[in-house]
Structures are given as structure tokens and as C-alpha cells.
């Protein structure tokens, strides 16, 4: 596949540099450009302190999400009850289940790591908060997945879970015993919500960079003088 030819004419890239532009398009371009510092969208270098296996669990979690989405999309091809009657469908369901277990395992290990590193330091509070929200969003998404298995598990889980949701007033609008409603929440609404939160989370991570070690001194400040904590 050949690469698209670059037009010799002026492009939006060139015009976005002109900060004086007042078009809405230019404003959006400036906003996107400013989301993360220049060169930090996908840098090929990281601060030297990023040297521990604990740093790989965020990416491992993201990878698990990819496997979840791909296996989930394959399941949607056959419909809600397909996997009960097709051995391939059952296999895809198994991949979906185990990628979810891996997703939560890696996400929780990622959270343990970030907690012990206090990675919310240096104005990274929203990074932690969006990560925590992604966790809770994932809980809800996984839960609706259990409800739409259309098997004994779904019967039991839905009839049990309704009581807590009803007591909180949520069940009045979110009926866990309504299969049709739960299918749509699980395959459309909730994945979009989780995907959106995860996107914001990743942008925030790239925006602020990886939190420096606790008690680290600013290497650009006067020779190794410790920053008071």
C-alpha cells in the first residue's frame, strides 16, 4: 500500500499554527493539539524511573479490553442465544469470559500499583478518578453480561440483583429482568461509556506523563537539593 501523497498546498496543519485564526475548526484543532504536550501522544522515550513491571499492567488491561471487544463482537454476530447451540459460539464465549477475568485482574493490579505509588501526585487527581470510574463502569458492564447469558446464572443473578437496585430506586428504570433492555445496555451503551472514560483516562496519562517517584527531586533544579515534602 502506498502512502497518500502530501499536497504541496497549505494544509490545516500549516494554518493551525496561525493562532490568530478564529474559525471553529481552528479552535478545535488548537484544543486537540493542546490536550497533551507536543510529542507526548505516543513518545518513544519515558522518564528513567519508568523501570518496573508494575508499569505494564495499564497496557495489559487495555489489551484485555481489546480481546473483550473483539470476542464480544463475534458473539453479537450469532445473537444472544447462539452460544448455547454452537461449539464455536461457546468457545468465543469462553474467550470473552477469560479475557474479562484477565481485564479485571490486570486492572486491579494496575490500581494496587498506582495506589502504592500515590500516582495522583502532581495534579494527577483526575487521572486516578477517571481510572476509578472506569473500574466501576466495568463492574456494571460485566454485571449486565452475566444477565444476558440466557442461562440459569442469568435467572438467578437477575432475580437476586433486582432487590438492591429496586431499593436504591434504580430498578425502576434499569430492569435487570428485562432481557431486551439488558442486551442493549451490555453491547452498546455501557461499552461506549467505559470506552469514553478509558479514552479520557489515557489522554490524562499522556498529558501529565508518568508520576515521578515519591520524594523525587526536580532534576532541573539546583544540584540534587531535595524538594521538601
Amino acid at each position: 500500500m502506498s502512502r497518500a501523497e502530501v499536497s504541496p498546498r497549505a494544509t490545516s496543519e500549516a494554518s493551525s499554527a496561525g493562532a490568530g485564526r478564529t474559525t471553529w475548526t481552528a479552535a478545535v484543532t488548537r484544543w486537540v493539539d493542546g490536550l497533551v504536550p507536543k510529542g507526548q501522544w505516543l513518545p518513544d522515550r519515558q522518564p528513567v524511573y519508568v523501570a518496573s513491571w508494575i508499569y505494564v499492567f495499564g497496557v495489559a488491561c487495555l489489551s484485555s479490553l481489546v480481546v473483550i471487544i473483539v470476542s464480544g463482537l463475534v458473539l453479537t454476530l450469532g445473537g444472544v442465544t447462539w452460544w448455547h447451540t454452537s461449539s464455536f459460539g461457546h468457545f468465543v464465549n469462553s474467550v470473552h469470559l477469560w479475557s474479562v477475568e484477565l481485564f479485571f485482574a490486570t486492572m486491579v493490579i494496575h490500581m494496587w500499583g498506582k495506589f502504592f505509588m500515590a500516582s495522583w501526585r502532581g495534579n494527577r487527581g483526575m487521572t486516578w478518578a477517571t481510572g476509578a470510574l472506569a473500574f466501576f463502569g466495568s463492574l456494571g458492564t460485566a454485571f449486565t453480561g452475566y444477565l444476558i447469558q440466557t442461562n440459569f446464572d442469568s435467572q438467578w443473578i437477575s432475580t437476586q440483583a433486582k432487590d438492591g437496585l429496586n431499593a436504591a430506586g434504580i430498578g425502576a428504570y434499569f430492569n435487570v429482568m428485562n432481557l431486551g433492555q439488558m442486551v442493549l445496555w451490555h453491547v452498546s451503551l455501557l461499552p461506549l461509556v467505559v470506552g469514553g472514560i478509558v479514552t479520557v483516562h489515557v489522554v490524562l496519562v499522556r498529558r501529565r506523563g508518568v508520576a515521578p517517584p515519591i520524594d523525587a527531586t526536580d532534576p532541573t533544579a539546583d544540584a540534587g537539593e531535595k524538594v521538601a515534602t
Binding site: 518496573s52 513491571w53 508494575i54 508499569y55 505494564v56 499492567f57 486491579v108 493490579i109 494496587w112
Partner: peptide, 16 residues
Amino acid sequence: AMVVVFVLALVLPFPS
């Protein structure tokens, strides 16, 4: 398994 993996991630040297 999660706890073991977490501890290993902290203890094992990262290739650099």
C-alpha cells in the same frame, strides 16, 4: 494469582 503476579511485578527486575 493476582497477589502473586503483583508481588512478582514489584520484585522482578525490569529489563533495561
